[in-house]
């Protein structure tokens, strides 16, 4: 394609359009090293990456399939339309990429000279984290999700702060903002 304004504009228009891929045309597979691959039409991509457009409110919708150079290969409007085999592979990959350590219990919060030490349970694993400056690193979102960012930049989540145990909430409440 020669470099003319018309061609550039055409390219841009193409970029702006989102056409959802027919889920039946996509066949996901796992390559021998355990990475997710995709066969779409005649093209076989040995490794692809998945991106959610709405990771919080619609995790199973609007999933973009990109190659390793971030070029868009397919757009899945709804993962429910995939067959069971594909769905399992996609879910596994998404769970890996979008892994959110979810806090199940807050055992204690200690304030020592401006740094806060949280004793947390993430599933059945005990985790001690240090958080500096709570006003920026402990956020309560509109939908009662709480995000805590520790001094290393790790992110931890409470899906719904009103649903955690009363004891945990009591430990956390003085710091909620």
């Amino acid at each position: 394609m020669s470099l003319t304004i018309e061609n550039l504009e055409k390219e841009n228009t193409k970029k702006m359009e989102t056409t959802f891929t027919d889920p039946a045309a996509c066949v996901f597979f796992k390559n021998p090293n355990g990475f997710l691959g995709l066969t779409i039409g005649d093209a076989v991509h040995k490794r692809v990456q998945l991106r959610r457009a709405l990771p919080f409110s619609a995790p199973a919708k609007y999933v973009f399939v990109l190659d390793m150079d971030d070029k868009e290969l397919a757009v899945l409007e709804d993962l429910a339309a995939l067959n069971a085999e594909n769905r399992a592979l996609v879910d596994e990959e998404l769970a890996m990429r979008y892994y959110y350590p979810e806090i199940t219990q807050i055992k204690s919060v200690k304030d020592k000279n401006g740094a806060h030490y949280f004793e947390l349970m993430i599933g059945s694993v005990k985790k001690n984290i240090a958080v500096k400056d709570l006003s920026k690193n402990l956020k309560q979102l509109e939908n009662n999700t709480v995000i805590i960012i520790d001094v290393d930049g790790n992110r931890y989540f409470i899906r719904d702060v009103l649903k955690v145990q009363r004891k945990s909430l009591r430990a956390l409440e003085p710091y909620l903002y």
């Binding site: 990771p55 890996m96 990429r97 979008y98 892994y99 959110y100 350590p101 790790n154 992110r155």
Partner: peptide, 8 residues
Amino acid sequence: KIERYVTT
């Protein structure tokens, strides 16, 4: 190589 994801 290192790849960065959301929290891992």
